[in-house]
């Protein structure tokens, strides 16, 4: 488990990672939690929109698009 931690925004497309913590506060934080971005959830970066942002992630079975403003707030540990 020596993998370096990074933000979800940095996760390359097609890669999977495990949520370590959600750094946002207030409403944004609750939103992200409710989408299932709780610690230990496995997330996959599925695809970028044509303009590069937002990015669609597979989170607990659903495809959810997040802007980089939000995904930057989520710390993840990449999985092999």
């Amino acid at each position: 488990m020596g993998d370096p931690e990074m933000t979800l925004a940095c996760l390359p497309i097609g890669h999977r990672a495990q949520v370590v913590k959600v750094g946002a506060e207030g409403l944004t934080r609750n939103r992200l939690l409710d989408l299932g971005l709780v610690p230990s959830t496995v997330v996959e970066a599925v695809r970028k929109s044509p303009a590069g942002d937002p990015v669609a992630y597979k989170i607990r079975g659903a495809i959810i698009a997040l802007r980089s403003e939000e995904s930057r707030l989520v710390t993840v540990r990449p999985l092999a």
Partner: peptide, 10 residues
């Protein structure tokens, strides 16, 4: 400032 944006692609 822009608010949180989350959009499900069903």
């Amino acid at each position: 400032v822009p608010s949180t944006f989350t959009l499900e692609l069903p």
